[in-house]
Amino acid sequence: MKYTLIIHGSPAASPSSQTALRFARTALRQGHELVRIFFLGDGVYTASRIAVAPQGEQDLYQEWRNLGVEHGLDMVVCISAALKRGLLDEQEAQRYNQPAFTVEPPFTVSGLGQLVDGTVTADRTITFGA
């Protein structure tokens, strides 16, 4: 089956991103396809390349990143949610004249059209709430 996942919760304050990660791993292991992972609201913090996981805690950024690279996942952070939270890829950082970029592949920054497209393309869309 083809799945799209939507993640609303902050990786630092909610189990949303972690639960979605476990779902993604299991789905892939069982031979399902992940059309897209879409990070929305505080969920976009999952894509911060400069987040530092406390010692002894799960490093969600690295785990999502590794999974994304290994499986060629399409991982999109919502641009309107991302910009106001300081999550900019290199292109957006240049566009807004910011001193650093905080999002890099396999995460990409894009709009809600990707959410709608991912939903329509998938057989099932699963929302992991805030």
Binding site: H8, L40, G41, C78, S80, A81, G111, L112, G113, L115, V116, D117, V120, A130
Partner: peptide
């Protein structure tokens, strides 16, 4: 209380513009 309502309406408008 959150941006969920706004995100929902924006997604709705995008979906409508995709002719859904």
């Amino acid at each position: 209380g959150s941006t969920l309502v706004r995100d929902g309406i924006e997604t709705l408008l995008v979906a409508a513009s995709y002719d859904l």
